[in-house]
Write a protein that binds this DNA or RNA. Structure first.
Length: 574
DNA sequence: GCCGTTTTCGGCCCGACTGTTTTCAGTCG
């Protein structure tokens, strides 16, 4: 069985939890956590790197010992040190640390004094009022834990999709901006870094001295409860369950605060380490030389203090951006303005809502030069997929429409099903009449990785195949990616002159950021496409751009930053 | 456990808020 990066990371994280409860050296614990984070963010499976005998110690934070441990996990699926540690500290204590207000210290006290080994022990002890009597706990803490327990379910905390968080953020930001004395309001955190999902919102506010922003904030009708509230910081929960942290900072600290609250935490730590090396100190109020503040108004000047060129928020994940920025070699990231057209959308001929004409008008309004109409093919009956005859009719219709358009081209295409054996759903006789062909998997998601990979490679063997749509098939928070060897597919796509899609539907975002970077490294160009099923959703393009930027993509890495004239040549396979 | 114009030891990012304290530890981001 192949061990995935996420499983390796999980083992290191659990080990870190247990060692923390054992009160071990905090820096050793941090090393395990750093390693877990690093492994999760790798664009390659550790299993594959080890197979290729690559030296894992080249990654920052991985030394001889951790490299050896990763190899053991990959080879045996086990981490001996973790097994031993579980004998001294029960695994369930690590789960208990997920409960708010319970950290390693309190979990240890509960375990030592009350023999609490799991959640149900904890519930019992609270009922008997034993927890409140423990040193360092008290009535209020017991009450808080009791409340948290009522909601606590094991497993990952649900993160909101960026599109959903966006609606909640917009409305709150508008409310804050109307409060007298409030100057700037910006959502920082993972939202500003455009992560595909966000766990909470971090909102940064600057205001005049006499503004009673914090008091007025509590009048916002979206707030369900107040977790904490001070002069410069408040934490509230919205009715949707989303937690919001609001921080007030002085105007002169705006840049330093924005940098700090944008994160990621790992990125900030690296920046601060650089400062430390230069005997500077960076906190959310500025850059300090001794007592003296030497920068802080803008993010750019904070970065400059430690010899870094400005790093776009989407890159701040500690995935190598610091080292590249030191050399001033960061890529110029793609922007929405670079996009010249959309290469994937549906009309009411298959399962879309609008006519071709309506879709075209919407695309022109967005300033595009072309729009590809890509209906489903016949195998996808549920979506009114087209057969050969129907597709030929649509081709004719588009040929009639095109001469009437000024400075705009409708492209003839199809989102053709890839059948289980890797054949395409429509005959070559019709496919050859199209400007290009998108291939997609809409069935048999459960094939083995080897079979699914082979299926896609066979489809790409067809010389009319150009772009692989939503390559992993995942739906955020709903459906996992199907098992495929994406790295192999990318190399083979490059070989055949095929391309990958970044599907910009907010619940797909497929390829994701890490895979985009992998594609860039493989030399495969990407089509950022909305897969719009209505005129309005052609505007989802920016969600794709967000992830592309997180994947380090420049305009040249993306197909549809090109004119149709230039693009046409890339679609002709030799 | 990692790392090195402090290179094999001795450091390792930094501050706000809460509750339980009476000056601070724990948790969180």
């Amino acid at each position: 069985m192949k061990v995935h990066n996420a499983e390796i990371a999980e083992k290191f994280n659990e080990l870190a939890d247990l060692l923390e409860i054992k009160n071990e050296n905090p820096f050793r614990i941090r090393a395990y956590r750093n390693a877990a984070r690093l492994i999760k963010s790798l664009s390659h499976e550790a299993t594959d790197l080890i197979k290729k005998e690559e030296d894992l110690t080249k990654f920052p934070g991985i030394g001889e010992d951790l490299a050896e441990k990763i190899i053991i996990i990959v080879k045996t699926g086990e981490l001996p040190l973790l097994k031993q540690t579980r004998k001294k500290v029960p695994k369930a204590l690590s789960d208990m640390m997920r409960i708010p207000d319970l950290g390693p210290k309190r979990v240890k006290i509960l375990y030592d004094k009350l023999k609490i080994r799991n959640i149900s022990d904890l519930k019992k002890a609270i009922k008997q009022g034993k927890v409140a009597k423990l040193e360092g706990f008290g009535e209020k803490t017991q009450e808080k834990i009791e409340k948290a327990l009522a909601k606590f379910k094991t497993g990952e905390k649900k993160r909101l999709k960026l599109v959903d968080a966006s609606m909640l953020a917009d409305s709150l930001v508008k409310f804050l901006q109307k409060i007298p004395g409030v100057k700037e309001v910006i959502v920082a955190g993972s939202f500003r870094r455009c992560k595909q999902t966000v766990g909470d919102l971090d909102i940064l506010v600057t205001k005049s001295k006499n503004s009673h922003m914090m008091q007025r904030l509590l009048k916002y009708d979206g707030i369900k409860s107040v977790v904490s509230q001070g002069e410069t910081r408040a934490t509230v929960k919205l009715h949707s369950g989303l937690q919001v942290d609001i921080r007030v900072v002085p105007q002169e600290s705006y840049g330093a605060a924005l940098l700090y609250f944008t994160g990621s935490q790992a990125h900030n730590i690296e920046v601060r380490k650089l400062a430390q090396q230069k005997s500077l100190k960076i906190n959310e109020y500025g850059v300090f030389k001794g007592e003296k503040c030497i920068a802080g108004k803008t993010e750019k000047e904070v970065y400059r203090c430690v010899n870094l060129s400005y790093i776009e928020p989407e890159l701040r994940e500690d995935r190598g951006e610091i080292a590249v920025s030191l050399k001033n070699k960061l890529p110029k990231l793609i922007t929405l303005k670079d996009i010249k057209g959309d290469l994937h959308c549906h009309t009411n001929v298959s399962d879309g809502q609008n006519s071709i004409e309506e879709m075209v008008r919407a695309a022109q309004k967005l300033g595009y030069k072309y729009l590809a109409i890509t209906e489903h093919s016949k195998h996808l009956t549920i979506a009114n997929g087209l057969n050969e005859k129907q597709l030929l009719q649509q081709i004719k219709k588009i040929d009639k429409l095109n001469p009437k358009l000024k400075n705009f081209q409708i492209l003839k295409s199809i989102e053709c099903d890839i059948l289980e054996d890797g054949k395409l759903d429509l005959s070559d006789d019709v496919l050859k009449e199209l400007d290009f062909v998108i291939g997609a998997i809409h069935s048999k998601f459960k094939l083995s990785s080897a079979k699914q990979t082979e299926r896609i490679l066979r489809a790409m063997d067809n010389k009319y195949f150009n772009i692989l749509a939503h390559p992993t098939g995942r739906l955020i928070n709903q459906r996992d990616a199907y098992e495929i060897d994406l790295e192999k597919i990318m190399w083979e796509a490059k070989d055949r002159g095929c391309f990958m899609e970044l599907n910009a539907q907010p619940d797909r975002l497929d390829l994701d950021d890490v895979h985009c970077k992998m594609a860039k490294e493989s030399g495969v160009k990407i089509s950022i496409a909305t897969d719009a099923h209505s005129a309005a959703t052609l505007e989802y393009m920016h969600y794709g751009i967000d992830q592309a930027r997180r994947g380090w993509l420049s305009a040249r890495d993306v197909l549809n930053t090109r004119s149709w004239f230039e693009l046409k040549k890339l679609f002709i396979r030799s």
